[in-house]
Amino acid sequence: MVECLQLGSPLPFRVTARPAPSVRRPGVGVALLVLAPWFAVAGTFFLLEGAWPVSAFMAASLAGLVAAFLHVRRHAGDFEQLTLDADRLVVDSHAPGDDRHAEFNSQWVSVAVRPAGIVGGMGTPRLVLRGQGKEVVFGYLLSDAEVATVGRELARRLSRIRQWGRA
């Protein structure tokens, strides 16, 4: 789901992750319109014949498909961004109804990759950033491999900043 992943050099170091929907808004309309008229005709026919549950189940099925597309569209603009410069590590994220911004001191922030799941140690790995009394989880839009790579790269650059004052 990652469209853009920039590991820029040397500073600021920035990672941006976005979902990459390959269908545009008109395409979604067409995808749904393929079924809607058919359901309308067949559903009405069976309704008139007295088999009204057919219409109800068809509506439920179409609603499921619409909900799936709405979910994808709703999250099409989501992003997670991590920006590192010599002084600060900034994490921004956007999801519907959930905009987050967090800043850490580059000298003190700790970075760990750990599973964030429900069954002990079995969940999806995420990048966990800790410092100044707060904890931010990064990488919801990254795959496991990308989380690991970004984690390694970030840890390497933080180490260089702390050692040499530059990444």
Partner: peptide, 17 residues
């Protein structure tokens, strides 16, 4: 997959009846 979304509700409804 489109066929499935189109006709499985018909099966579900007829066995519900």
């Amino acid at each position: 997959a489109y066929l499935l979304v189109a006709v499985m509700p018909v099966l579900a409804s007829v066995i519900t009846m």
